[in-house]
Amino acid sequence: MAFQPSIAPDIFALRPDFAALSIYAENARNTASDAHGTELLRQACHDLRAAPWAEAHLAAWRDAYKAFGAKPQRTPCSAEALHKRALRDQMLPAVNAVVDLYNAISVRYALPVGGEDAALYDGVPHLMRASGNESFETMAEGAPKIETVEQGEVIWCDARGVTCRRWNWRQGLRTRITEHSTEMWFVLERLDPMPGDALLEAGERLIEGLRRLSPDVRTTQLYLAAASQSIL
């Protein structure tokens, strides 16, 4: 697997129950949002509580955030942020076909799902706790801004800097998937009590959606957990 993420041991020390499903997609295609993606979002928002572990899984993420010093009331995990918006608006905004797909899966499974343009990475993704010297490219009041992350914060990063802050709270601008992206990386992140089988099912739904958009897409899955790492 050419694009293989790594997870530092101190992440598993923080949450031994953490597991991630990495999906790398080559020869992929993205488009503007379409009716199919909008319907996926609508269904996911309608079935917010379909997953029996949903509330407990979001609570587990709140506990994980508190464990490294974050305040989940102010900066919730990505799945909870989408969940709250879906509750409030009964729908999520369309972005583009691929982002709509993984947002719908995130809401349906109460699962943090990240999508990145792998071609824009400098090296491969690493999940680690920050030293406090790493930089993060974002926007503030409509202008580009460089932030320095907090020591001990859980971050995804590459050789150039942070690609996602506070585990899965906020994605950086540099590696976002756009309609021009053809090489993509996705990470689906679970804690107990979400079943491992449900994580794999969510990954299969993501791959099915990518194949609808890109019949010739090639995907590789990698399962990462404290006691194991395996290509699926």
Rank of each mutant, 00 (worst) to 15 (best):
R29N: 10
S106R: 02
I177C: 10
E134Y: 05
V124N: 01
R88M: 00
F12P: 05
S78A: 09
C157I: 01
E134L: 12
R190D: 00
L213Q: 13
S33W: 02
R211A: 06
E201K: 13
L213C: 07
A2H: 05
F68G: 05
V217N: 08
E183K: 10
M1L: 04
G172C: 07
W53D: 11
H83V: 06
L173G: 08
G123C: 09
C77L: 01
D10H: 09
R74L: 13
C45E: 03
P93G: 05
M91C: 12
V99K: 04
I23M: 09
A81D: 11
G196P: 00
A8W: 04
R166F: 02
V149M: 13
D122E: 11
A81Q: 15
W169L: 00
Y65F: 15
Q229H: 07
G37S: 10
A94K: 01
A198P: 00
A140S: 14
K71I: 14
Q151G: 12
Q229I: 03
R174A: 15
V113L: 08
S33G: 03
E26M: 12
I207L: 07
V149C: 14
T31D: 12
C77P: 01
G161I: 07
P195Q: 09
A226R: 15
T182I: 09
I155T: 06
Y102H: 14
T182V: 12
L200T: 07
V95N: 03
S228R: 08
P215W: 08
D158F: 00
H46E: 12
K84G: 03
R15H: 04
S214W: 06
Q151I: 13
A119C: 09
G142Y: 04
L82E: 04
L232M: 01
A32S: 14
K84H: 07
P52A: 11
V98A: 04
A25R: 10
I146G: 00
N30L: 14
P215E: 09
S78E: 05
I105P: 02
T31L: 04
D89F: 13
S214D: 08
G172P: 01
W156L: 14
L224Y: 07
H46K: 10
I146S: 08
A119R: 13
I231A: 13
T138N: 15
A119W: 12
D100A: 02
C157F: 02
H180G: 03
A225F: 06
E183G: 05
Q4K: 14
